[in-house]
Design a protein around this nucleic acid. Structure first.
Lengths: 220, 220
DNA sequence: GCTTATCAGATTGTATACATGTATACAATA
DNA sequence: TATTGTATACATGTATACAATCTGATAAGC
């Protein structure tokens, strides 16, 4: 069997990877809206390739929960209902709290500085797309020190499949201030190695986010 | 967008589904061993189809974590190391406890009876493959009343990617009695609607399983 | 008027064929 | 002898071509 490293080492990227990344990013940015159909031929000509690698990419994204495939009917950007959003937020609270609790004792100085720098970036961001990406990176940096790749992957998945709803309707003005304050508090607790405090703050942070998403999801 | 039901409604199964299910099952049964290569052509002729739907199936299984794909080199049955096994067991304890706690208050009479019947089946099973499947079904039946499809899917994934190691080396004689006793205790707690008790027993049950897997994983 | 059949058009699913990348064995060299 | 280079065989990646299925609009029936 090949070394596990091989997958990450490969410098040149395969066509399905490129396509998958494009679609994933477009979904995160809400350029592709929930429920929208993804046509194989359209994507194929866009990238100047045939439909086969496009199909591979769509399968991949199905595994990540971003796309739903219906045999003979096509691929659609996943469009979870309020019930599913609640469920995913429940899982996120569970898993992100779990990861953060394990992360807190492991933070290196460099990792704390990375979080601080991402937080500083967030303070000065106006447009929605950049906010979304940086917010994602900040949270990823918070959990990374738990050193559990599979756990981090799961969290990334869950965040990816619901966060776009958070960014879709809310303007930075409306959620920015509260969100930033919560981020600052969480980071401060991490710096003090206060795992219980950090986890409690994170849970409140996520519950607030869920409330926002629920309020916009009922009347779209 | 098609109704969500459509996916489960489709009575006739597509070729990739059939192939994926075969491979999945073979991995669960340890007919396909960790690290073993899966060749497209071989699978294609086995099912009398071309390599395209086989590739689809492999992509799907990659998403489920059962198979790892290396570009231009092939597909291999995933072969997690002890570190990863520990990590997955940690996630299992977290998620299965979460699901069981939500499930306990929801159990219907029929659901309790299903658990009891699966447990009875387990008592009288000798061969390893049947034990594995029924054990899986018993646990699934325990968590099902939480009524959270995505959570149940995640648990199924995690169980699938590590349980084969549990069944691989241990004989029913060695782990059967303890395991059965623990199952009986958990079910009894569910019948008494004792969520805390059931969760505590389940966590001990899983920690025992992890210990077994660790002890066999270090000297394979 | 409403429901059910029917039939193009479009889209996906799959087979075949070819291109590209990888692994093994063997020869050449230090 | 060990190491590097090369040739060959083999497996995977992708394009093209064709078959199967779905969608939507129109027409027939009640």
């Amino acid at each position: 069997m090949p070394e596990r490293v091989a997958a990450s080492q490969s410098k040149y990227r395969t066509a399905p990877e490129v396509v998958a990344e494009y679609i994933r990013d477009a979904i995160y940015r809400n350029e592709l809206r929930p429920g929208q159909q993804l046509q194989q031929e359209e994507l194929a000509v866009k990238f100047g390739i045939s439909r086969i690698p496009v199909r591979d990419a769509l399968r991949q994204l199905q595994g990540e929960g971003l796309v739903e495939l219906y045999p003979n009917r096509g691929a659609f950007v996943s469009n979870p209902g309020v019930e599913e959003l609640r469920e995913v937020f429940g899982l996120r609270i569970l898993l992100e709290a779990y990861a953060l609790r394990m992360a807190v004792p492991n933070f290196t100085k460099a990792e704390l500085e990375l979080c601080a720098s991402l937080l500083a970036q967030l303070e000065s961001i106006a447009n929605r797309a950049d906010w979304s990406r940086t917010d994602q990176e900040f949270h990823a940096a918070l959990y990374a020190p738990c050193r559990q790749p599979r756990t981090l992957g799961l969290i990334d998945n869950l965040r990816g499949s619901v966060n776009r709803f958070y960014y879709l309707y809310l303007s930075p003005e409306s959620y920015g201030p509260d969100c930033l304050r919560e981020h600052r508090q969480i980071l401060k607790a991490c710096q003090k190695k206060d795992a219980d405090g950090a986890v409690a703050l994170l849970e409140r942070h996520l519950r607030n986010a869920l409330k926002e998403v629920e309020s916009i999801s009922v009347q779209p």
